[in-house]
């Protein structure tokens, strides 16, 4: 696993950006949707988003593996990663809300991005394609390690062998409290049901802040 390296903050960025009162602005909440290649992340975001999911790019800096440190400065390598963004407004909620959805791939090299997205988030959905169950291990252990509430949603692809949620739970060694649900990522009510399940789970989870896992650092904190 390539370990993410720290990105020193710009000291000039030490002060929080001043903000202006804006009484009718809805409160923003966010949910992370993670999953392996082709698991249906973009489809799920698009099913409930009011905008067509946007693909957004960010640079990530990671240590090059197998390169000796030179004067304590590790050789770094910058790669571009892409993630999805969608949003929906919930004006009929008791307080006006806007929900941001971030869809992110499940590989190790996205860990820095997951930290950014997890801070202050409601929780995460790990979308699973049972034909490639092994791609779910990394996001599952990441959200477990940082203590962010998450649910596992098994996406039912046509022709894929249908695993029972309990089989998926056993394969991923999930604790009993983590909900495992099935969904069709193309169906808005299904995806909304997964989000509701996550919110219900987050309401039951102890309100601990997101903790950095060992060996990982925040970027642009």
């Amino acid at each position: 696993m390539p370990s993410p390296t720290s990105r020193p903050d710009d000291p000039a960025a030490a002060l929080r950006t001043p903000s202006r009162p804006h009484s009718d602005a809805p409160t923003v909440l966010k949910i992370v949707i993670a999953g392996g290649f082709g698991a249906g992340k973009t489809t799920a975001v698009g099913a409930v988003s009011e905008i067509t999911p946007l693909s957004t790019e960010e640079y990530l800096t990671e240590a090059s593996t197998g390169v000796d440190s030179l004067e304590g400065v590790e050789a770094k390598q910058t790669t571009t990663v892409a993630f999805d963004f969608g949003r929906l407004s919930l004006p009929d909620a008791p307080v006006p809300l806007e929900l941001f959805l971030f869809g992110t791939p499940g590989q190790d090299r996205f860990v820095d991005l997951w930290y950014d997205l997890s801070r202050g988030a409601v929780g995460a959905v790990v979308l699973i394609d049972t034909r490639r169950l092994e791609t779910s291990f990394t996001p599952v252990s990441f959200f477990e390690d940082i203590g962010l509430p998450f649910v596992v949603a098994v996406n039912h692809f046509d022709g894929a062998h249908r695993y029972q949620p309990e089989q998926v739970r056993a394969a991923l060694e999930l604790p009993a409290c983590v909900p495992v649900v099935t969904c069709d990522a193309r169906n808005p009510s299904d995806v909304a049901g997964v989000l509701l399940t996550l919110v219900g789970h987050a309401e039951n989870a102890p309100a601990t802040p997101v903790h950095p896992a060992p060996n990982a650092t925040l970027q642009d904190a």
């Binding site: 909440l29 409930v48 929906l88 919930l90 009929d92 909620a93 008791p94 307080v95 809300l97 929900l99 409601v122 009993a176 409290c177 983590v178 909900p179 649900v181 808005p188 009510s189 299904d190 909304a192 049901g193 989000l195 509701l196 399940t197 919110v199 219900g200 789970h201 309401e203």
Partner: peptide
Amino acid sequence: ALSAGLKRKWPDAIAYLQ
């Protein structure tokens, strides 16, 4: 509030409670 808002927007959505 988020729960209530989602239910209002998607009345058919079912939360699976653990």
